[in-house]
Design a protein around this nucleic acid. Structure first.
Lengths: 337, 337
DNA sequence: TCGATTCGTGCAAGCGTTTGCACGACGGTC
DNA sequence: GACCGTCGTGCAAACGCTTGCACGAATCGA
C-alpha cells in the first residue's frame, strides 16, 4: 500500500527489459542504449520507483549515506556545519547519519564503530581521539577531518594563525599594549595550533587553558580584571560572552574596561549587548568543503587534501581604542611595536 | 582488512552452531538454550561482531534506525531535542538519521520520502506540511510529532496554554496592565494553539504574527514603543532578544521601559544582558519522550498517545514591577482584574 | 567479404540477515 | 512402554539490488 512497494523488477517488467538493465540505467547510464534508457526512465517515473537503500548497500554498491560526528550539536558552530553538510547531502541524494559524541574520545570511536559499514564515508568534526584509534575503527572507509589535521588524512580547517593574528592585530591597531589571548583545551587541535602561533608573537599575555564555555568565561573575567590586560582575544564567542557577563556582574563594562574579541561569529554574538567583535569563520564553507572532500574520496580520487579556510574580522562594539594611560606600564617595558 | 569483515556466519562457525541460531540469540534470546546462548555471546564478543544494518533491514527485520526531521538544526531549541534523541538512540543501539527541512513543507515531505524505508520510524519536529501529505509519504511507518498535534498520531508537545498563562500571569503579578502577547507564524501548530489560549484571556494586546527570529523582534520593538504595552510575552527567546536589541538601539531599556518574557529558555537567553526572564521548556524531555513514543510504536504498542509537557517560569532580569503610572489609562478603561 | 572489435543486454551469483518450517531429543502421562 | 507435547536447533528461502560474465548483433578495417 505504501513504503517501498515498487521494486527494480517491477520497473523492468513495465519497461520490458531485464532488471539488471534497469539497474545499469540508474547507476551507469552510459552503458545502456538511448532508446532503452528513455523507456526505463519513463517506467521509473510512472511507477514512482525509489531504490531500496539496504538492498543497494548489501549488493556492494554505494550506501548513499555519509556519517557525521560532532562533539556537540547544541553548539551553534557545529550545528551550522551539520546543516551545510546535510543540505549538500540532500542535493546529492545522499542521507546523513549524525552522531553526537559529547566531546568524549570513547563516544567518538564507538559512534564511528556503530556507523562503520552503514556509510560511504565519515566527516568528523574536531575529533579528540587519537588517529590510531580512528584508523582502526574506520579501516579504509574514507574519512575527512574538520578542524583537525593529521598526516595522510584529508581535512579542512580554519586558518588558526590568521585567527590569532587578526584578533591581536585589531587590538594593537586600537592602541592596546597589554593583550591577552586565551588558550583552549589542549585536547583540541585548534588549541594546540593557536598555541604554536601565540608563541611566535611578542608581547602577548597568555591565559588559560580555559574551557570554551560561558561559565569558564565568567570565571576568567575575574582573572582578567586583576591583570593589566586591556584587550583580549577569547578562544571562541561563547567564552567571550562569558567574559562580558563576568565584567558586567562585577560592575565593569565592555568595551570600556576591556576590549573583547571573540572567534567563530555565532548568532548569539551579534545579538549580545554590546554586539561582539569577532573573528568570523566561514562555517558554512567548512561543511561544504568537507562534503566535497569526502565525495571526492568516495569517488576514488585518492589524493588526500588539506584545505585551509580564511577567516575575517567582524568589528562590532566590544572593542574600542585603548584609554590613554592604559597599558602604559607595559609599553614602557614591552615592545614598541 | 576491516570495515565489517566479520559476519554472522563467522560467529556461527566460531561458536559451532548454525547462523540462524546466532541470529536468534541476538534478536530473541529466550528461544535459545542457555549453554548455546553464552557460547554465542562469547564468540560475538571475541570476534567483535557488529550486525550489518543493510542485511538486517533487507531481511525484513528492524532497521535499527530512526529518522528525525527538524525545521532548523541551527535553532538551539531543536538542536537540544536532536541531542536528546540521539543520546537515547545511542543507548538503545540505534542510529539516527537527521534531515533539516529548512522549515519548508516540500522539504519536509521529500526528506521523509528519502528516508522512508530506511528507518523504523519518524520523529518530526514542528512540521508544517499537512497531515495528509505526511500520511501518504510515510505510509504505515510509525510516526511521532513533536510540538504539533494531529488526530490519531502520537505526539508530544509543550503545554501552550501554560506558556501563555505563566507569562501573562507573571507580568500581571508585577502590576502590568497593558500586556502584549506576540503571535507566531500561523503555519505552526504552537502558534495556532497559543492564539486559541489568548482569545480566552482578557485585556491582552495581541501582536503579530511576527516571525520567531531576531530581526523580526527588532522590528517589533518599534511597534511596541509606539504602543502602551508595558510588558510583553514574546513567541520565543530569540524574538525576545530581538525586542531587547530594538529597545537598546532606540536608547530605551529593558526592563525599565518594557518587561520582556521569552519562551523556550535557550542558552543565549541566560547569557544576554540583562538575562532573559522566560518560560522554560523541558526541551530535553521533549526529545526523550518522543523517542519513547516512537520506540513503543515500533515495538507494536499501537496506541497513539498525546503527551503534554509542563513548562515553568524562570525569572531573571528582563521583567520588573510596572511603574506607578504606567498602564493607568488602560486600567481605567480595562478590566479591573 | 570475412575476422576482429565494440556495443547493448540478459543471466545468475551473490551480499548478510531473518524467519517459517521441519526434525530429533527429551520428559511426562496413561 | 508407546505416545504426545515441548523445546532447541538446523535448513533454506527470501529480501532488492549490483556486477562479472557471456552472448548475439552491429560495425569497422583490410
Amino acid at each position: 500500500m505504501s513504503g517501498q512497494a515498487v521494486t527494480l523488477a517491477d520497473v523492468a517488467l513495465a519497461a520490458g527489459v531485464h532488471p539488471s538493465t534497469v539497474s545499469r540505467v540508474l547507476s551507469r547510464p552510459q552503458l545502456i542504449g538511448e532508446p532503452t534508457r528513455t523507456a526505463v526512465h519513463e517506467a521509473v517515473a510512472r511507477l514512482g520507483y525509489v531504490p531500496n537503500r539496504a538492498a543497494r548497500q548489501l549488493a556492494g554498491g554505494r550506501v548513499g549515506s555519509i556519517g557525521v560526528l560532532v562533539p556537540d550539536i547544541t553548539n551553534p558552530f557545529f550545528a551550522q556545519i551539520v546543516r551545510a553538510v546535510q543540505q549538500g547531502c540532500r542535493d546529492a541524494g545522499q542521507t546523513m547519519l549524525l552522531a553526537d559524541t559529547d566531546q568524549r574520545a570513547d563516544e567518538e570511536l564507538s559512534g564511528a564503530r556503530a556507523l562503520a559499514g552503514s556509510v560511504d564515508g565519515f566527516v568528523v568534526c574536531s575529533p579528540v581521539a587519537d588517529m590510531k584509534g580512528w584508523r582502526s575503527v574506520v579501516g579504509d572507509t574514507p574519512l575527512v577531518l574538520v578542524n583537525r589535521r593529521a598526516n595522510g588524512i584529508s581535512s579542512v580547517a580554519l586558518d588558526q594563525r590568521a585567527i590569532v593574528e587578526l584578533g591581536v592585530q585589531h587590538l594593537r591597531d586600537l592602541g592596546h599594549r597589554t593583550i591577552g589571548v586565551v588558550r583552549g583545551p589542549t585536547a583540541y587541535w585548534s588549541s594546540r595550533e593557536r598555541d604554536r602561533v601565540i608563541r611566535t608573537l611578542d608581547g602577548i599575555t597568555v591565559l588559560g587553558p580555559v574551557a570554551p564555555d560561558f561559565q569558564a568565561g565568567i570565571a576568567l573575567a575575574a582573572e582578567l580584571m586583576a591583570s593589566s590586560v586591556t584587550g583580549v582575544l577569547a578562544f571562541n564567542d561563547v567564552q567571550a560572552l562569558g567574559i562580558m557577563a563576568g565584567y558586567r556582574a562585577a560592575g565593569r563594562s565592555v568595551p570600556h574596561d576591556l576590549s573583547v574579541v571573540g572567534s567563530d561569529d555565532i548568532a548569539a554574538g551579534a545579538m549580545s549587548d554590546p554586539p561582539l567583535t569577532t573573528v568570523t569563520a566561514p562555517v558554512q564553507q567548512l561543511g561544504v568543503t568537507a562534503l566535497q572532500l569526502i565525495e571526492q574520496l568516495i569517488a576514488g580520487g585518492g589524493a588526500t587534501d588539506e584545505v585551509s579556510l580564511p577567516v575575517s574580522l567582524t568589528i562590532r562594539r566590544t572593542t574600542k581604542a585603548a584609554a590613554r594611560g592604559a597599558g602604559t606600564h607595559l609599553a614602557r617595558r614591552g615592545e614598541p611595536q
